[in-house]
């Protein structure tokens, strides 16, 4: 196994299961999602995070991984030893196969060698395994996680003829963006019903403004204007826009603004052009921007 390179060389390589969220990621709760997640973690119930793109699902998982790694976390009261919880994230795509998750044989000088996939590694070390945008994967791949998500908590590794029992700290978290995928790519019910769901949405304007202030480093007024813009642009969803402006995009705009890019221009590049190619829709958004920003 490679050693992490010393800091200062610009990059660091980690084994996937060694990634622990060290610094606390900023997260502003909108409801009691933190408590829910903690409860689910303690009870080993897999979690499904539902919500539009860029509303903070991934950030939430990171935040929770960090939170649960703290010595003072809820796990303590349960009597178990508080070890950092690694976070294994897999961005799912439509060509993601079972082998990609579980592992495969590689060939080397001696012949073939088995190498664990990210899911297997997470199962072994007891990490939170976060499958982002799960519906993008093929249906045969999705089925693979079923035995991990019920009381058995096992991962069959067919090619090796093994059954792997999940480590104590293992938790499967998947995310799903309803409405964005086509009907063909809907999550199967047999999959859905193995998770508790936490719904996410874009935060209300005041909270979003706070998030923007923190994340983008803009002043309160600009943050408020950006949040307002976010709200207005989201009103266009399904009316020319497939998706409203995510908090992430607003943060980008805010970051550009705090770098001295004029507000209108920053919004243009990070929101208007990002969201639509339709000239009418673009113009409408530009008008909203020019109403809000000087």
């Amino acid at each position: 196994m490679e050693q992490p390179r010393p800091r200062g060389t610009g990059f660091q390589t980690l084994q996937i299961e060694e990634y622990v969220v060290e610094d606390e990621p900023f997260y502003m709760p909108l409801g009691n999602e933190i408590a829910l997640f903690e409860a689910a973690y303690l009870q080993k119930i897999p979690v499904l995070l539902k919500g539009p793109t860029g509303c903070g699902k991934t950030r939430f998982v990171e935040h929770m991984a960090h939170r649960l790694s703290q010595p003072s976390s809820v796990r303590q009261s349960n009597g178990s030893e508080v070890r950092p919880v690694p976070l294994v994230t897999v961005a799912c795509h439509e060509d993601l196969t079972a082998s990609d998750l579980v592992g495969r044989y590689l060939i080397d000088a001696e012949g073939t060698r088995w190498i664990d996939g990210p899911l297997t590694r997470a199962v072994k070390v007891g990490a939170i395994c976060y499958l982002d945008e799960i519906v993008e994967t093929r249906k045969d791949t999705t089925v693979l996680i079923h035995p991990l998500t019920d009381h058995r908590r096992i991962l069959p590794v067919e090619k090796q003829g093994l059954l792997m029992e999940a480590n104590e700290g293992f938790l499967l978290v998947i995310s799903y963006n309803p409405g964005y995928q086509s009907a063909l790519k809907d999550l199967k019910h047999s999959t859905r019903q193995r998770f508790v769901s936490i719904e996410f949405d874009y935060p209300p304007m005041e909270i979003e403004a706070k998030i923007l202030e923190h994340e983008a480093g803009v002043d309160a007024e600009t943050a408020m204007s950006l949040a307002k813009l976010g709200e207005k642009v989201r009103n266009l969803k399904d009316h020319g826009l497939q998706e409203g402006s995510s908090t992430r995009l607003l943060i980008y705009a805010g970051k550009l603004i705090s770098q001295g890019v004029p507000a209108r221009e920053a919004c243009q590049v990070s929101i208007v052009w990002a969201l639509s190619d339709d000239i009418q829709v673009q113009r409408s958004m530009e008008e909203v921007i020019s109403s809000i920003f000087e």
Binding site: E231, K232, V233, N235, L236, H239, G240, Q280, V281, R283, S284, M285, E287, V288, S291
Partner: peptide, 15 residues
């Protein structure tokens, strides 16, 4: 009309 329509929709939050 289209531009103003979408603009107004954005502001008002409904159709």
């Amino acid at each position: 009309r289209d531009v103003v329509g979408l603009y107004s929709r954005a502001l008002a939050g409904n159709d």
